[in-house]
Design a protein around this nucleic acid. Structure first.
Lengths: 246, 246
DNA sequence: CGTCTTGATATGTCTGACATATAAGACTTG
DNA sequence: CAAGTCTTATATGTCAGACATATCAAGACG
C-alpha cells in the first residue's frame, strides 16, 4: 500500500491525512476489511504525532469508512459500507438540508412524491407476496384504535419504505428510502394535527390493491391523490396558522 | 444551550460527545452559525480531556456539520449545510456503496434511469431558456473533434446534471444529481470503449428537443432508448470479455 | 486621529505517559 | 498429554501539560 505522505503545512494535517486515506479506499488501494497501519506507524509515515493521526481516523470513522478495534490484533479496518448505514447518513443529511435551507413545503412535497412514484412501475411488475404482506400489515397497524400519533407516523414511514422495497432494486431502494424517511417525518410533523387517518388508510389501501393487481395506472392515481391530500393539508395548516396570527 | 454531559464510560467518549452535539444541531438547539463552547469548555463540561473533545469535533467536521476558525474570536461554528456540500457526500457514499457491494450493472442502470426519468414531467413543464442552453452547449461540446474520453464523460455528466436541474426543484435536483453523478462515471468507465459518441449525441439531442417542445412522451422515449443502449453496451462488453477469457 | 504594539483567547500540534482490551504464546496443573 | 491459566506484547482510548500560531481587541504612541 502506497500513500502520499507529503503534507501541506498550511492546511490541517488531520484533514489532509483523512483525505489521503479516503482516496486510497475509494481507489480500491485499501481492500475491504483490510487493516490500516497502526496509529503509531501512520504518525511516523506522515511525520506527525499520534493525536493528529487519531483525529484523521475519527473523521473517517464518522463517515463509516473505517471501524476500529482495540487489542493486540486490533487497529483500523476498512468498512464494507452497507446500505443501511449509508441510509442513516443520507437521512441525517437530508433532514438537515431541509431544516437549514428554508425549503418550502410545496417543494419538498413535490420532490418526495416525484421520487416515490419512481418505484411504482417496477413495484407493479416485481412485487412479491412478502411485499404485499408488509404493506397490508402496516395498514392494519394504522387502523388500530388508540394508536399514538408517533406510532401512526412510524407505521406511515414503514409503509412507504415497504413500497419502495417492492421495486426489488437495492440501489433504487436506498435512494428512495433515504428521501422518504427524511421527508415523511417532516411532513407528518406539519400535518399530523389536521389529517384524517381514515383518509390516509384508504389511500394506502388503494396503493396496496393497485400493486396487488399490478395496475400501474391505479397506483399512480393513488399516489397522486396522496400527493394532493398532503398539499391540501399543508395549505389548511397554513390558513389556520395565519388566522391565529391575525 | 444544554447538553447531556453524562457519558457511558464503556463506550468511546469522542463518539458519544459527537452524537450529543449532533443531536443538538439536528434538534435546532444550536442555531446555524452559532458558536460552540471552546474546546477547553467542552472538555470541562464533559469531564474529558481536550484531545478527546477534539476527536469529537473532527467527527462533526467530517460531516460538514461544523467549521472551525482559529484566533481570538475563533472556535467551532454550526455550518449551514448547503446542497453542494451535501451532494459531494452523497456522491462519495453512493460510489463506495456501489463498488463495495457487487451491485451488478443491470441493477445500477435500472436504478439510475428510473431515477432520472423522475425529472422529465417537471422538466417539460418548467424548463427555461437557460436550461435548454446548458443542454445544447454540452451537446455541442460532445461533438467536438478530438475531445478526450475524459472530456466526453465529463460533458455527459454535465448534460444529465443540467437535465435534472431543468425540473427546477432543488431538493429533487439534489437527490437525482447525486444518483447521476455517482453512477454515470461508473457506467462510462465500463462502456466508454464500446460506445458510439454519435449515437449518444443523437439521443441527447432528442432529449433536448423533447424538452424544447415540452413533449413528455418524446422525452420518455429518448430516455428509454438511452437506457436500452446502455444495457446493450453493457452486454456487448460482457460478451467481449468472456470471449477473451476463453 | 490613525497606526502600532501588545495581550488575550482560541485552535493546531507535540510529547510522553497511563489505562485497557485482546490474542497468542508460555506456563502450570490435573 | 491435554486443558486451563498466566504472562506478555501490541493496539487503541485517554489524559496532562506544553508550545506554536492565528486572530481580534484594546491600549500606547506618534
Amino acid at each position: 500500500m502506497k500513500l502520499k505522505t507529503d503534507l501541506d503545512s498550511a492546511r490541517d494535517y488531520s484533514q489532509q491525512i483523512a483525505q489521503t486515506i479516503r482516496d486510497a479506499i475509494i481507489a480500491g488501494d485499501l481492500p475491504v476489511d483490510g487493516r490500516l497501519p497502526s496509529e503509531g506507524d501512520l504518525a511516523a509515515r506522515f511525520g506527525v504525532s499520534r493525536p493528529t493521526v487519531r483525529e484523521a481516523l475519527k473523521r473517517l470513522a464518522a463517515q463509516n469508512l473505517i471501524r476500529t478495534q482495540r487489542g493486540a490484533t486490533g487497529g483500523a479496518f476498512v468498512n464494507r459500507l452497507n446500505f443501511e448505514q449509508a441510509q442513516e447518513h443520507m437521512v441525517t443529511m437530508a433532514t438537515l438540508l431541509l431544516s437549514m435551507n428554508r425549503v418550502d413545503f410545496e417543494t419538498a412535497v413535490e420532490a418526495r412524491f416525484s421520487l416515490e412514484r419512481t418505484c411504482l412501475p417496477l413495484a407493479c411488475t416485481r412485487r412479491g407476496p412478502e411485499h404485499l404482506a408488509r404493506l397490508r400489515s402496516e395498514i392494519a397497524r394504522q387502523a388500530i384504535d388508540g394508536l399514538t400519533d408517533e406510532g401512526f407516523c412510524a407505521s406511515d414511514v414503514a409503509f412507504h419504505r415497504a413500497l419502495v422495497d417492492a421495486a426489488d432494486n437495492p440501489v433504487l431502494s436506498w435512494h428512495l428510502a433515504g428521501a422518504v424517511e427524511a421527508m415523511q417525518p417532516l411532513m407528518n410533523m406539519i400535518t399530523y394535527t389536521a389529517r384524517s387517518r381514515a383518509q390516509i388508510i384508504a389511500l394506502h389501501s388503494a396503493l396496496a390493491c393497485a400493486l396487488d393487481d399490478r395496475d400501474l395506472a391505479a397506483a399512480n392515481a393513488a399516489m397522486d391523490e396522496l400527493n394532493a391530500y398532503t398539499l391540501e393539508l399543508g395549505s389548511e395548516i397554513r390558513t389556520r396558522r395565519d388566522r391565529n396570527r391575525s
